[in-house]
Protein backbone atom coordinates (compact mmCIF):
# COMPACT_ATOMS: atom_id res chain seq x y z
CA UNK A 1 0.00 0.00 0.00
CA UNK A 2 2.78 2.39 0.97
CA UNK A 3 4.50 1.84 -2.38
CA UNK A 4 1.28 2.57 -4.23
CA UNK A 5 0.63 5.75 -2.29
CA UNK A 6 4.20 6.98 -2.85
CA UNK A 7 3.93 6.36 -6.58
CA UNK A 8 0.54 8.07 -6.76
CA UNK A 9 2.10 10.96 -4.85
CA UNK A 10 5.00 11.20 -7.33
CA UNK A 11 2.62 11.18 -10.29
CA UNK A 12 0.49 13.87 -8.63
CA UNK A 13 3.47 16.13 -7.89
CA UNK A 14 4.83 15.68 -11.42
CA UNK A 15 1.40 16.44 -12.83
CA UNK A 16 1.09 19.63 -10.76
CA UNK A 17 4.54 20.80 -11.90
CA UNK A 18 3.79 20.05 -15.55
CA UNK A 19 0.39 21.63 -15.21
CA UNK A 20 2.03 24.83 -13.96
CA UNK A 21 4.71 24.86 -16.65
CA UNK A 22 2.45 24.03 -19.59
CA UNK A 23 -0.28 26.29 -18.21
CA UNK A 24 2.13 29.24 -18.04
CA UNK A 25 3.31 28.53 -21.58
CA UNK A 26 -0.27 28.50 -22.83
CA UNK A 27 -1.08 31.67 -20.95
CA UNK A 28 1.88 33.30 -22.63
CA UNK A 29 0.58 32.12 -26.01
CA UNK A 30 -2.80 33.56 -25.20
CA UNK A 31 -1.42 36.94 -24.22
CA UNK A 32 0.70 37.17 -27.33
CA UNK A 33 -2.00 35.90 -29.66
CA UNK A 34 -1.61 38.02 -32.83
CA UNK A 35 -5.34 37.98 -33.62
CA UNK A 36 -8.29 35.63 -33.58
CA UNK A 37 -10.95 34.79 -31.03
CA UNK A 38 -8.73 34.62 -27.93
CA UNK A 39 -7.03 37.88 -28.80
CA UNK A 40 -10.46 39.40 -29.26
CA UNK A 41 -11.83 38.08 -25.96
CA UNK A 42 -8.74 39.20 -24.07
CA UNK A 43 -8.86 42.63 -25.68
CA UNK A 44 -12.56 43.00 -24.88
CA UNK A 45 -12.04 42.06 -21.25
CA UNK A 46 -8.72 43.76 -20.60
CA UNK A 47 -7.96 46.58 -23.00
CA UNK A 48 -11.00 47.88 -24.83
CA UNK A 49 -11.74 51.59 -24.16
CA UNK A 50 -13.96 52.25 -27.14
CA UNK A 51 -17.03 54.49 -26.88
CA UNK A 52 -19.25 51.95 -28.58
CA UNK A 53 -19.16 48.19 -27.99
CA UNK A 54 -21.06 45.66 -30.07
CA UNK A 55 -22.25 42.38 -28.54
CA UNK A 56 -23.90 39.41 -30.21
CA UNK A 57 -23.33 36.20 -32.12
CA UNK A 58 -21.94 35.55 -35.62
CA UNK A 59 -24.31 38.13 -37.08
CA UNK A 60 -22.81 40.74 -34.77
CA UNK A 61 -19.30 39.61 -35.56
CA UNK A 62 -19.80 39.66 -39.33
CA UNK A 63 -22.36 42.43 -39.90
CA UNK A 64 -20.84 45.38 -38.04
CA UNK A 65 -17.77 47.14 -39.39
CA UNK A 66 -16.27 49.38 -36.66
CA UNK A 67 -14.19 51.30 -39.22
CA UNK A 68 -17.28 52.31 -41.23
CA UNK A 69 -19.17 53.31 -38.10
CA UNK A 70 -16.20 55.25 -36.71
CA UNK A 71 -15.88 57.21 -39.92
CA UNK A 72 -19.51 58.20 -39.79
CA UNK A 73 -19.87 58.78 -36.05
CA UNK A 74 -16.45 60.06 -35.11
CA UNK A 75 -16.40 57.69 -32.15
CA UNK A 76 -14.32 54.63 -31.38
CA UNK A 77 -16.11 51.31 -31.95
CA UNK A 78 -15.19 47.77 -30.88
CA UNK A 79 -16.99 44.66 -32.16
CA UNK A 80 -17.05 42.08 -29.34
CA UNK A 81 -19.48 39.76 -31.13
CA UNK A 82 -18.60 36.08 -31.22
CA UNK A 83 -19.95 33.40 -33.60
CA UNK A 84 -21.86 30.51 -32.06
CA UNK A 85 -22.43 32.30 -28.77
CA UNK A 86 -25.67 33.33 -27.15
CA UNK A 87 -26.95 35.18 -24.12
CA UNK A 88 -24.64 33.57 -21.54
CA UNK A 89 -21.53 34.73 -23.42
CA UNK A 90 -22.91 38.23 -24.05
CA UNK A 91 -23.80 38.54 -20.37
CA UNK A 92 -20.38 37.39 -19.19
CA UNK A 93 -18.54 39.67 -21.61
CA UNK A 94 -20.73 42.56 -20.69
CA UNK A 95 -20.05 42.11 -16.96
CA UNK A 96 -16.33 41.72 -17.66
CA UNK A 97 -16.20 44.93 -19.72
CA UNK A 98 -18.32 46.94 -17.28
CA UNK A 99 -16.08 45.91 -14.41
CA UNK A 100 -13.31 47.94 -16.06
CA UNK A 101 -15.01 50.84 -17.86
CA UNK A 102 -18.38 52.07 -19.05
CA UNK A 103 -18.88 52.41 -22.82
CA UNK A 104 -21.17 55.25 -23.94
CA UNK A 105 -23.25 52.89 -26.03
CA UNK A 106 -23.58 49.13 -26.14
CA UNK A 107 -25.20 47.71 -29.25
CA UNK A 108 -26.62 44.24 -28.82
CA UNK A 109 -27.45 42.45 -32.05
CA UNK A 110 -30.45 40.30 -31.18
CA UNK A 111 -32.45 37.82 -33.22
CA UNK A 112 -36.20 37.97 -33.54
CA UNK A 113 -36.48 34.70 -31.62
CA UNK A 114 -33.52 34.92 -29.24
CA UNK A 115 -35.65 34.76 -26.09
CA UNK A 116 -37.33 31.62 -27.36
CA UNK A 117 -34.17 29.55 -27.19
CA UNK A 118 -33.64 28.07 -23.77
CA UNK A 119 -30.43 29.03 -22.03
CA UNK A 120 -29.35 25.42 -21.67
CA UNK A 121 -26.18 23.72 -20.43
CA UNK A 122 -24.76 23.69 -23.94
CA UNK A 123 -24.94 27.44 -24.40
CA UNK A 124 -23.23 27.89 -21.03
CA UNK A 125 -20.62 25.30 -21.96
CA UNK A 126 -19.96 26.96 -25.32
CA UNK A 127 -19.37 30.27 -23.58
CA UNK A 128 -17.18 28.70 -20.91
CA UNK A 129 -15.07 27.13 -23.68
CA UNK A 130 -13.80 30.60 -24.58
CA UNK A 131 -13.86 32.18 -21.15
CA UNK A 132 -12.08 29.55 -19.03
CA UNK A 133 -8.53 30.86 -19.72
CA UNK A 134 -9.65 34.17 -18.14
CA UNK A 135 -11.14 32.51 -15.06
CA UNK A 136 -8.49 33.58 -12.60
CA UNK A 137 -8.13 37.09 -14.02
CA UNK A 138 -11.70 38.36 -14.02
CA UNK A 139 -14.31 38.04 -11.33
CA UNK A 140 -17.10 38.46 -13.85
CA UNK A 141 -15.79 35.48 -15.82
CA UNK A 142 -15.24 33.49 -12.63
CA UNK A 143 -18.80 34.08 -11.43
CA UNK A 144 -20.11 33.05 -14.81
CA UNK A 145 -17.99 29.90 -15.30
CA UNK A 146 -18.84 28.72 -11.78
CA UNK A 147 -22.45 28.64 -12.92
CA UNK A 148 -21.64 26.15 -15.69
CA UNK A 149 -21.31 23.23 -13.28
CA UNK A 150 -20.30 22.53 -9.71
CA UNK A 151 -17.16 20.77 -11.02
CA UNK A 152 -15.67 23.89 -12.59
CA UNK A 153 -14.31 25.42 -9.40
CA UNK A 154 -12.25 22.33 -8.71
CA UNK A 155 -11.27 21.56 -12.29
CA UNK A 156 -10.05 25.10 -12.80
CA UNK A 157 -7.42 24.59 -10.13
CA UNK A 158 -5.62 23.04 -13.09
CA UNK A 159 -3.97 25.58 -15.37
CA UNK A 160 -4.15 23.10 -18.21
CA UNK A 161 -7.88 22.56 -17.84
CA UNK A 162 -8.39 26.30 -18.22
CA UNK A 163 -7.32 25.80 -21.84
CA UNK A 164 -9.42 22.67 -22.29
CA UNK A 165 -10.15 22.21 -26.00
CA UNK A 166 -9.05 25.75 -26.89
CA UNK A 167 -5.77 24.81 -28.56
CA UNK A 168 -6.98 24.72 -32.12
CA UNK A 169 -8.39 28.22 -32.11
CA UNK A 170 -5.57 29.52 -29.96
CA UNK A 171 -2.80 28.20 -32.18
CA UNK A 172 -4.49 28.88 -35.51
CA UNK A 173 -3.74 32.64 -35.62
CA UNK A 174 -0.03 31.84 -35.16
CA UNK A 175 -0.13 29.70 -38.30
CA UNK A 176 -2.59 31.63 -40.48
CA UNK A 177 -2.57 35.35 -39.93
CA UNK A 178 -6.00 36.95 -39.93
CA UNK A 179 -7.89 33.67 -40.31
CA UNK A 180 -10.20 34.60 -37.44
CA UNK A 181 -10.29 38.32 -38.17
CA UNK A 182 -7.56 40.93 -38.45
CA UNK A 183 -6.57 43.25 -35.61
CA UNK A 184 -7.20 46.37 -37.69
CA UNK A 185 -10.79 45.28 -38.28
CA UNK A 186 -11.42 45.82 -34.56
CA UNK A 187 -13.33 42.61 -33.91
CA UNK A 188 -15.17 42.56 -37.22
CA UNK A 189 -14.92 39.33 -39.20
CA UNK A 190 -16.00 40.15 -42.78
CA UNK A 191 -17.39 37.29 -44.80
CA UNK A 192 -16.92 36.47 -48.47
CA UNK A 193 -19.35 35.17 -51.08
CA UNK A 194 -22.68 36.23 -52.52
CA UNK A 195 -26.18 34.87 -52.98
CA UNK A 196 -26.53 36.42 -56.45
CA UNK A 197 -28.14 33.94 -58.83
CA UNK A 198 -29.32 31.65 -56.05
CA UNK A 199 -32.99 30.93 -55.68
CA UNK A 200 -34.00 31.34 -52.05
CA UNK A 201 -37.73 31.38 -51.41
CA UNK A 202 -39.22 34.13 -49.25
CA UNK A 203 -39.84 33.29 -45.60
CA UNK A 204 -42.50 35.05 -43.59
CA UNK A 205 -42.23 34.89 -39.81
CA UNK A 206 -45.47 35.46 -37.98
CA UNK A 207 -45.68 33.88 -34.54
CA UNK A 208 -47.70 35.21 -31.65
CA UNK A 209 -47.53 32.61 -28.89
CA UNK A 210 -45.99 34.41 -25.89
CA UNK A 211 -45.90 31.14 -23.95
CA UNK A 212 -42.85 29.89 -25.85
CA UNK A 213 -40.41 32.42 -24.40
CA UNK A 214 -37.83 31.02 -22.03
CA UNK A 215 -38.09 32.61 -18.55
CA UNK A 216 -34.40 32.05 -17.85
CA UNK A 217 -33.42 33.76 -21.10
CA UNK A 218 -35.68 36.70 -20.27
CA UNK A 219 -34.15 37.00 -16.82
CA UNK A 220 -30.60 36.89 -18.17
CA UNK A 221 -31.43 39.47 -20.83
CA UNK A 222 -33.10 41.81 -18.34
CA UNK A 223 -30.09 41.55 -16.01
CA UNK A 224 -27.78 42.38 -18.89
CA UNK A 225 -29.79 45.45 -19.85
CA UNK A 226 -30.22 46.71 -16.28
CA UNK A 227 -26.52 46.24 -15.58
CA UNK A 228 -25.76 48.54 -18.51
CA UNK A 229 -28.42 51.04 -17.58
CA UNK A 230 -27.19 51.19 -13.97
CA UNK A 231 -23.74 52.10 -15.24
CA UNK A 232 -25.14 54.76 -17.53
CA UNK A 233 -24.54 53.15 -20.93
CA UNK A 234 -27.10 53.65 -23.64
CA UNK A 235 -28.49 50.29 -24.77
CA UNK A 236 -29.32 49.83 -28.43
CA UNK A 237 -30.87 46.58 -29.58
CA UNK A 238 -30.44 45.94 -33.28
CA UNK A 239 -32.07 43.37 -35.52
CA UNK A 240 -29.97 42.65 -38.60
CA UNK A 241 -31.68 41.87 -41.91
CA UNK A 242 -31.96 38.35 -43.36
CA UNK A 243 -32.18 37.70 -47.08
CA UNK A 244 -35.72 37.42 -48.43
CA UNK A 245 -37.27 37.20 -44.98
CA UNK A 246 -40.19 39.22 -43.72
CA UNK A 247 -40.87 39.39 -40.01
CA UNK A 248 -44.46 40.27 -39.11
CA UNK A 249 -44.11 39.54 -35.44
CA UNK A 250 -42.61 37.03 -33.00
CA UNK A 251 -43.03 36.46 -29.25
CA UNK A 252 -39.55 37.93 -28.72
CA UNK A 253 -40.41 41.12 -30.62
CA UNK A 254 -43.71 41.41 -28.76
CA UNK A 255 -41.84 41.08 -25.49
CA UNK A 256 -39.21 43.67 -26.50
CA UNK A 257 -41.99 46.20 -26.96
CA UNK A 258 -42.45 46.15 -23.21
CA UNK A 259 -38.78 46.71 -22.36
CA UNK A 260 -38.31 50.24 -21.12
CA UNK A 261 -35.26 52.42 -21.57
CA UNK A 262 -33.67 50.77 -24.60
CA UNK A 263 -33.45 51.86 -28.21
CA UNK A 264 -34.45 49.31 -30.81
CA UNK A 265 -33.26 49.58 -34.40
CA UNK A 266 -35.05 46.96 -36.44
CA UNK A 267 -33.69 46.27 -39.93
CA UNK A 268 -35.34 42.91 -40.36
CA UNK A 269 -37.88 44.27 -42.84
CA UNK A 270 -35.63 46.81 -44.56
CA UNK A 271 -36.06 45.78 -48.19
CA UNK A 272 -32.91 47.62 -49.24
CA UNK A 273 -31.14 44.73 -47.54
CA UNK A 274 -33.65 41.89 -47.45
CA UNK A 275 -34.16 41.93 -51.22
CA UNK A 276 -30.53 42.33 -52.29
CA UNK A 277 -28.74 38.99 -52.75
CA UNK A 278 -25.47 40.81 -53.48
CA UNK A 279 -25.26 41.73 -49.79
CA UNK A 280 -25.27 38.18 -48.39
CA UNK A 281 -22.84 35.34 -48.01
CA UNK A 282 -25.72 33.09 -46.89
CA UNK A 283 -29.36 33.87 -46.07
CA UNK A 284 -28.59 35.03 -42.53
CA UNK A 285 -25.11 36.58 -42.80
CA UNK A 286 -24.16 39.73 -44.68
CA UNK A 287 -20.98 39.62 -46.74
CA UNK A 288 -18.28 42.27 -46.51
CA UNK A 289 -20.04 44.65 -48.90
CA UNK A 290 -23.42 44.13 -47.21
CA UNK A 291 -21.91 44.58 -43.75
CA UNK A 292 -20.24 47.86 -44.76
CA UNK A 293 -23.49 49.17 -46.22
CA UNK A 294 -25.43 48.01 -43.18
CA UNK A 295 -22.91 49.64 -40.83
CA UNK A 296 -23.23 52.91 -42.76
CA UNK A 297 -27.00 52.84 -42.47
CA UNK A 298 -26.88 51.84 -38.81
CA UNK A 299 -24.52 54.70 -38.05
CA UNK A 300 -27.00 57.15 -39.57
CA UNK A 301 -29.76 55.74 -37.35
CA UNK A 302 -27.47 55.94 -34.32
CA UNK A 303 -26.68 59.65 -34.70
CA UNK A 304 -29.94 61.01 -33.19
CA UNK A 305 -29.54 58.57 -30.31
CA UNK A 306 -25.99 59.67 -29.65
CA UNK A 307 -26.66 63.39 -29.79
CA UNK A 308 -29.62 62.98 -27.47
CA UNK A 309 -32.22 64.32 -29.90
CA UNK A 310 -34.06 61.03 -29.70
CA UNK A 311 -35.49 60.20 -26.31
CA UNK A 312 -35.52 56.58 -25.17
CA UNK A 313 -38.18 54.65 -26.95
CA UNK A 314 -39.47 51.17 -26.76
CA UNK A 315 -40.04 49.15 -29.89
CA UNK A 316 -43.72 49.95 -30.36
CA UNK A 317 -43.11 53.69 -30.37
CA UNK A 318 -40.00 53.31 -32.49
CA UNK A 319 -41.87 51.38 -35.16
CA UNK A 320 -44.55 54.08 -35.26
CA UNK A 321 -41.86 56.69 -35.87
CA UNK A 322 -40.33 54.62 -38.68
Amino acid sequence: MKKLLIKIGIVCVAFVVLDLVVGSFLLNLLEKSPDGRYYKTRYSLEEAQEDIVILGSSRAEGNYSPAVMEESLGMEVWNAGRGGQGLPFWAAMNSGILARYTPDVVIINVENDFLKESVDDQSFERAAGILRPFYNRHNAVKNFVDMVSDKEKLLLKSNLYAFNSSFYYMLRPYLFEGIDGRVEDKGWKPLKGSLAGKDIPERVINEDDQEVLDPEAIMMFENLVSELQDKGSKVVLTLSPDYNKKVVTTPTLEYLKSVEGVYVLDFSNDEYFTKNPEFYTDPIHLNKEGAMEYSRKLAQELKPILNGSKTKKNLAVWNEIR
Partner: peptide, 15 residues
Protein backbone atom coordinates in the same frame (compact mmCIF):
# COMPACT_ATOMS: atom_id res chain seq x y z
CA UNK B 1 0.88 8.04 -17.53
CA UNK B 2 1.61 11.76 -17.22
CA UNK B 3 0.92 12.34 -20.91
CA UNK B 4 -2.44 10.57 -20.72
CA UNK B 5 -3.37 12.56 -17.61
CA UNK B 6 -2.44 15.79 -19.34
CA UNK B 7 -4.28 14.85 -22.52
CA UNK B 8 -7.44 14.08 -20.56
CA UNK B 9 -7.17 17.37 -18.66
CA UNK B 10 -6.46 19.43 -21.75
CA UNK B 11 -8.70 17.73 -24.28
CA UNK B 12 -11.19 15.62 -22.37
CA UNK B 13 -14.85 16.53 -22.48
CA UNK B 14 -16.14 16.95 -18.96
CA UNK B 15 -19.71 18.00 -19.59
Amino acid sequence: ILLILMYITALGVFD
